[in-house]
């Protein structure tokens, strides 16, 4: 490079070449030791997908046909109670509900 020939452009840091070399080796060995744990194999996704589908299927099977709490409540009401609810004066609802 021709630019800045009359200026000191060296990096002003204290790390020696030997230190950096050992640091690089250390980082590389740690990376090769750590990395396999981070590699996720395709079979893992397949297994996770099948497991998730099984859990969802089981959930649907178990809860299929169950009535909701609201349906149970409405079914438990007598005709008089239904009439009472239906005739509830709407003007009694506080303003902040609007």
């Amino acid at each position: 490079m021709k630019e800045f020939e009359n200026i000191v452009t060296d990096l002003p840091y204290k790390e020696s070449p030997e230190y950096v070399e050992s640091l690089v080796k250390s980082c590389a060995s740690v990376a090769s030791a750590q990395a396999p744990a981070k590699v996720v194999r395709p079979w893992f996704y397949a297994f996770a997908g099948v497991a998730a589908a099984a859990v969802i299927g089981l959930g649907v099977f178990l809860f299929k046909g169950r009535t909701s709490p609201m349906d149970s409540f409405l079914a438990s009401l007598t005709d008089d109670e239904v009439t009472l609810i239906a005739d509830w004066p709407i003007t009694d609802i506080p303003e902040y509900y609007y």
Partner: peptide
């Protein structure tokens, strides 16, 4: 293999990569 590529990357370019990042 991945090990060979990492080995080459660290031994040939490792120090330069460190200084590039450091800058």
């Amino acid at each position: 293999s991945a090990n060979d590529i990492l080995q080459q990357a660290s031994s040939v370019y490792g120090k330069r990569l460190y200084w590039h990042i450091r800058r």
